[in-house]
Design a protein around this nucleic acid. Structure first.
Lengths: 203, 203
DNA sequence: TAATAACTAAAACGAACGTTTGATTATATC
DNA sequence: GATATAATCAAACGTTCGTTTTAGTTATTA
């Protein structure tokens, strides 16, 4: 059974998820083969289908394992913020959004999030809608409290810049060779400074 | 020969490039098949190898056709700027970088640039190094003129935020459904405002 | 007109892909 | 210990992939 005797099963299942995550990140969905994944995980090729039914199902499982805890953390941060203070602070809101990713996520999660944005629309669209829709709505509402006179469209646009700068920080690929030996904390602070200042620009 | 009788050849070559660009964008390098590309371009499968030798060669050709004109434009903008004024303005520098992409590029170019960042490292690294290395160096030097007291590392980090926000603007995928019917000019202005303010943050 | 280059067409190559099947081993329950 | 179920395995399915080959057609040049 699946709930009992969890040791061997879960370790095989988990190994598949771990390998899939790493190979999806480095090769993309199309470029990652189930043979490479299962071979890396030291399980039989058929095990991938046994546990996840299909390659898409495996990708979806990798997605939810990583994204859901982060977004729950983000929402928890935001709730605490809104309950504690009357009018929330912009920096605190952006920190609630950025902190779980930049400071409390392991490297695999970060790279997977960045890779996500590059997958074909038909693959990620349903995942994004399910995994991020509620989150974006809640943060937009919170931002509206800080900028009551600013249109929601405007807030969404600026928020998308924040997301872009965050993803670039996560990605940190070939463009900028110079960056690399900077600590997570420093990058987080610089990103937060940049986004807060950018968000406030012409208020 | 290749230089003469250019009509039929160039149109076939160009049609392959056009189809390849669109399919690379929507499916990624691995997900795009030469059969889908050549079929879409109404040429024989072998024509792709005849003109570009390999799938990688085709991808490289698509890359250079789109990226080089943009980066030449960026450098021209920057040169004009540095020759005209003594101490350049931050907004002007960032505009020199962002304007060719946001305002003077067609949709295909934008989507291809965004897709680029998501391809496997081994595929794009040599292309990026050849196509962007010089550009980044020149802009970093220019930024150093504006912020002589700021470390190059710091400037590179903030510049990477700019690139991230720009790419997110180009991408504009599933995250933010609300954005979409905003004109290029408006998005460009908002992005520039955001980046200038973010860049200045704690100076 | 003959020769050469540019290009197209169709077929096939071996390799790799996602997926399925059927048998086998391990584990738990009675 | 027998039985049922979960887990794993090797092997094969049909399909698609990038690439090559071979033959044929069209256009240019001499």
């Amino acid at each position: 059974m699946h709930t009992e005797n969890a040791d061997r099963t879960d370790s095989a299942r988990t190994r598949i998820l771990d390998s899939a995550e790493r190979i999806f990140v480095s090769k993309g969905f199309s470029g990652a083969s189930l043979r490479a994944i299962t071979s890396d995980a030291n399980v039989n090729l058929a095990a991938a289908h046994y546990y996840f039914e299909s390659k898409q199902g495996l990708f979806s499982a990798v997605f939810h394992r990583r994204i859901e805890p982060i977004n729950e953390q983000r929402l928890t941060n935001l709730e605490r913020l809104l309950n504690a203070t009357g009018k929330p602070d912009l920096r605190q809101i952006l920190a609630a959004f950025l902190r779980p990713v930049l400071l409390h996520s392991n490297q695999g999660t970060l790279e997977f999030m960045a890779q996500l944005t590059a997958e074909p629309e038909e693959l990620i669209q349903p995942l994004i809608a399910r995994g991020f829709g509620h989150l974006i709505t809640r943060f937009t509402v919170a931002l509206k409290l800080v900028f009551p006179e600013t249109s929601e469209l405007d807030l969404n646009i600026r928020f998308s810049f924040v997301v872009g700068a965050m993803l670039q920080t996560i990605f940190n690929r070939s463009f900028f060779m110079g960056i690399g030996d900077v600590s997570k904390e420093v990058m987080y602070q610089k990103l937060l400074d940049f986004c807060v200042a950018g968000f406030l620009n012409n208020e």
